[in-house]
């Protein structure tokens, strides 16, 4: 696995993975995404209304995987809308704030929401304890979160979007696990690009695009 922090792969890829970022309001989902996709952190971030998305391409096992990551509003009232974006997702990161116990406790609810709204049970889910830089305000012990993740078969990482600690690792771990699972289990739903450039849901199929399809300009990046 090699990380690709440049965006050159965004124009040409073998696999498309749809990922969703969920969790309570204010846990730092948008900053995690902007840190991962653009290496950017906004001290003055704004609330996410509805859903926003960004893409990033990474190379795994010689294959270019384009991660299409949907960042969703945390307020409960938006669930009717955000759950429409879960369809076709092959990975999810449930984010909580390590300084806010309530956001951690609500992770069980988020897990339930995911399981009731997904058609694909093979989805890979990661639990993310964000705001790791605020150790002095920590209220969620790492051991407890690790235990919760183990019991629910979740990946687990503590991150800091502010200091850029483990952000790349959290996303990379998720993408690699999805890829490894798809290699070993036929039938996992990933998205592949067909010859017309349109995106279809289907089995993991490697695809080599024609040269003429290669793009010279960027599109589909962060909204």
């Amino acid at each position: 696995m090699s990380d690709a922090d440049d965006n050159q792969y965004n124009y040409d890829y073998d696999l498309l993975y749809k990922l969703v970022l969920i969790g309570d309001s204010g846990v730092g989902k948008s900053n995690l995404l902007s840190r991962y996709s653009n290496n950017d952190f906004q001290i003055n971030s704004k609330s996410t209304i509805g859903v926003e998305f960004a893409t990033k391409a990474v190379k795994v096992d010689g294959k270019i995987i384009k991660a299409q990551i949907w960042d969703t509003a945390g307020q409960e009232r938006y669930r009717a809308i955000t759950k429409a974006y879960y369809r076709g997702a092959v990975g999810a990161l449930i984010v909580y704030d390590i300084t806010n116990t309530k956001t951690y406790e609500n992770c069980s609810d988020w897990l339930n929401i995911l399981s009731t709204n997904l058609e694909n049970n093979d989805i890979v889910i990661g639990l993310i304890g964000n705001k790791k830089d605020l150790q002095h305000q920590r209220s969620v012990p790492i051991e407890e979160a690790q235990e919760f993740a183990r019991n629910n078969q979740l990946l687990f990482t503590e991150t800091s979007a502010l200091s850029n600690e483990n952000v790349e690792k959290a996303f990379t771990q998720l993408i690699t696990t999805i890829y490894e699972n798809s290699k070993h289990q036929t039938g996992i739903e990933t998205l592949t690009k067909n010859n017309n450039g349109s995106i279809d849901a289907g089995n993991t199929v490697s695809l080599t695009k024609n040269n003429k399809e290669k793009k010279s300009s960027s599109s589909g990046e962060c909204c």
Binding site: N10, E52, A84, G197, E213, G220
Partner: peptide
């Protein structure tokens, strides 16, 4: 030019809607 005829956007309505909105 930038969204509908751009093969990179695919034909997922949710993606297209987001790109159009942006």
């Amino acid at each position: 030019e930038r969204v509908l005829n751009n093969s990179d956007s695919g034909n997922d309505p949710l993606v297209l809607q987001s790109l159009i909105n942006t």
